[in-house]
């Protein structure tokens, strides 16, 4: 007797869909990713290594890591605070706030970059004042950090709001009725309940912060060894027909993203019992 699960599609359909999925992923995702590594290693490991330890490349790596190290924690704090406010409180203008937080998803990153030039650039609204006080924002690290924060700030909030709404307020109410202060309730009940969603939001934020091109490209000014992040450095090398170097830095960037994904998978595997028990 060969009976099948009534809720599963017939076998040929399943196999067909699976093949389509694999082919699609292969062409759109795996092949380009593999190509990056192949191109990077075209002239061997040594050439790839040299392209990465070269001073301008090192400066770009350092800048990218610095920008991520500042923008990710900023958006972590802002994301948790805004998600908590939106999911656990009733107030007027809640929808408006959510729409505003989504803005970076709908506005082109290039526009985001231009806005910062318009506001903080030499001829911008605050340009003269900033210059008089010796503060450079545009074409320097502060501008790059701000542009990165702009494009990455919806990730944590967007990840947490549906999760926190689904969890409701009952556990918080229970904590308060048991004598916990507001802060104790937040740190002992709210935060632990959202930790996996939060981790995922942070990883997404980090991946995007390290990889952002458009907005950063506008505010960076492309000063080699100073204001070029890794994606910008890749572009510069590519435009100079230095393909091996360009792909080597690109491969490193891809690896950084893979490391965060592996880290996430490891954490999920390491805490699988707690995850299963808490019903995530």
């Amino acid at each position: 007797m060969n009976r099948r699960d009534p809720l599963q599609a017939p076998r040929p359909v399943m196999i067909g869909l699976l093949l389509v999925a694999v082919a699609y992923l292969g062409v759109m995702l795996m092949l380009p990713l593999a190509a990056v590594f192949v191109e990077a290693l075209r002239n061997g490991w040594e050439a790839a290594r040299e392209a990465i330890v070269e001073p301008d490349a090192l400066a770009a790596i350092r800048l990218t890591l610095t920008v991520a190290a500042i923008s990710v924690p900023c958006n972590l704090v802002f994301g948790v605070a805004s998600a908590w406010l939106i999911a656990k409180h009733d107030f007027r203008g809640k929808e408006l706030l959510l729409t505003l937080i989504d803005l970076p998803f709908s506005v082109s990153p290039v526009v985001a970059g231009l806005i910062y030039i318009l506001i903080y650039g030499a001829h911008g609204w605050f340009g003269p004042w900033l210059e008089a006080h010796g503060i450079t924002v545009v074409f320097a690290t502060p501008g790059i950090v701000m542009a990165t924060i702009f494009v990455t700030f919806p990730f944590v909030t967007r990840e947490l709001v549906p999760l926190m709404i689904a969890q409701g307020r009952a556990e918080e109410e229970a904590a308060l009725s048991l004598g916990a202060s507001g802060w104790q309730t937040f740190t002992r009940v709210t935060l632990p309940n959202i930790r996996w969603g939060l981790l995922y939001g942070v990883l997404l934020t980090n991946a995007r912060a390290m990889g952002e091109f458009g907005a950063v490209s506008v505010v960076s000014g492309h000063i080699r060894g100073e204001t070029n992040t890794m994606p910008l450095h890749v572009e510069v090398l590519y435009n100079e027909y230095n393909f091996v170097a360009a792909f080597s830095v690109a491969a490193l960037l891809a690896l950084l993203a893979l490391v965060t994904l592996i880290l996430k998978s490891y954490l999920e595997w390491h805490h699988r019992d707690a995850l299963a028990a808490s019903g995530h």
Partner: peptide, 9 residues
Amino acid sequence: FQQYALFRH
């Protein structure tokens, strides 16, 4: 609480 509201973690 009706729905227990135990701390799931």
